[in-house]
Amino acid sequence: MKRPCKKVKKNLIAFLNHQLEEGKAKEIEQHLNSCSLCKKEEEELRLTWNLLGRLPIDKDFPDISNGVLERINREGQKSPFFQGLIEKITLIPAPAFSLLIFFLAIPPGTLLGKNLYFALSGSYHASLRETQIVYAEELPLDVFGDFPGQSLGNIYVNLVSESSEEE
């Protein structure tokens, strides 16, 4: 299929809409008079352009302004704090997000790690007992024996609270 000339392709639609500056419009007009291929294209597209003009202007859209304002008020009452927080986070996306993930990941990571360790090394309580014994032997702190804690973390907390009680 033969294509219209480049200059016409570039300017024809604006030409149909009478939006081309005078000099250019004259140039196109002259070309159309001498180039039958472009002339044919112009006639066909003009027809299409005019057909499009027969789509009516739609006047009867409903008034949505009240609906929009209601929605704004409704969403505004939905925990403004949380929304503010989300907004702030989206303002500094990368660092805020990675920090959030980092801190959120610590508790499940610790829990998972501990449970996995005990799951792999036999029963939970036996292993805990062993661990406590090993620690008590390596660091000769008999005091550990007195604590029925579930983990080293608990032992630490107990120790701290006891030492603060002593003061």
């Binding site: 149909l16 003009r46 027809l47 003009g53 789509l55 009516p56």
Partner: peptide, 19 residues
Amino acid sequence: SFPGREDEPSLQLAGPKEK
């Protein structure tokens, strides 16, 4: 689609070569 509005005059942008 919205019903066509036949009672309304459609946009007339007829050029000289309109068929």
